[in-house]
């Protein structure tokens, strides 16, 4: 079953710049997909449309059965509850602890305290931060902060995890740690779409790779077939 389906999607910004020309894509449940391409190829726009930070100018985007393009502003939360998003800059609440940052994503559902407690500790354990629950973000390293962000994104068990350059601010070793966390989450059944320009990671992970260029899919490499040649 397709978790994500894009049909004839086009995006033209108000400034007149066309970011995406006629995009057609299908992503299955449980896949791990890298989206790569040079700066300005439209990968950010593509991923933003998936969680409806941007609306397509025309075409159809279906995510988990929701028609994203037709989703009203006041109903966006319905989509957001089905997916998690991780960013390059983590986007944590600096004045809240690790625990509170993660619990925040569950509190909006109105779950009872005991259930929140249980779920938060479980997910912090999964990302290896159970012992830092009471720390504030500024007391953590970049890699740890990103793991908090991942924990927050997956704590309510979404089917889809969208990662926008999650390793962009991290060194190589830390990046690989994050990747192994993501791989673990993927193995538990969550579909992952990750935008990156780090070819080392892409080469090592051997997953499906979608190469965008000037707003079009230049090539869609099946799992394990993409190898980036240096230089």
């Amino acid at each position: 079953m397709n978790l994500i389906r894009l049909k004839n999607v086009k995006k033209v910004y108000k400034s007149g710049v066309t970011a995406i020309y006629d995009l057609n894509l299908k992503i299955e449940k449980g896949e791990f997909v890298f989206v790569i391409g040079s700066t300005g190829c439209g990968k950010s726009t593509f991923i933003k449309m998936l969680y409806r930070e941007e609306k397509p100018t025309s075409g159809q985007i279906i995510v988990g059965g929701l028609d994203v393009a037709k989703l009203r502003n006041s109903k966006v939360y319905k989509l957001r509850r089905k997916l998690g998003v991780v960013f390059q800059d983590f986007k944590l609440l600096s004045k809240s602890t690790v625990y509170e940052n993660v619990a925040f994503a569950l509190e909006v559902f109105g779950l009872p305290k005991s259930e929140i407690h249980e779920k938060v500790l479980k997910v912090l354990d999964l990302v290896g931060l159970k012992n830092k629950a009471k720390h504030y973000p500024h007391q953590l390293s970049g890699g740890e902060q990103q793991r908090v962000a991942i924990a927050r994104a997956i704590v309510n068990g979404p089917k889809l995890l969208i990662c926008d350059e999650p390793t962009g601010n991290l060194d190589e070793v830390t990046s690989m740690e994050i990747m192994s966390v993501l791989d673990e989450i993927n193995k538990l059944g969550t579909t992952i779409i990750m935008v990156t320009h780090d070819t080392t990671i892409v080469n090592k992970m051997k997953k499906r790779v979608i190469l965008l260029d000037a707003g079009r899919v230049l090539k869609d490499y099946e799992k394990g077939t993409y190898v980036h040649e240096a230089g």
Partner: peptide, 16 residues
């Protein structure tokens, strides 16, 4: 602004 952005991101409805 960031706090509101994050609230939206984790699926808080506008009224929430």
């Amino acid at each position: 602004k960031r706090e509101i952005e994050i609230m939206r991101l984790v699926g808080a409805s506008n009224i929430n």
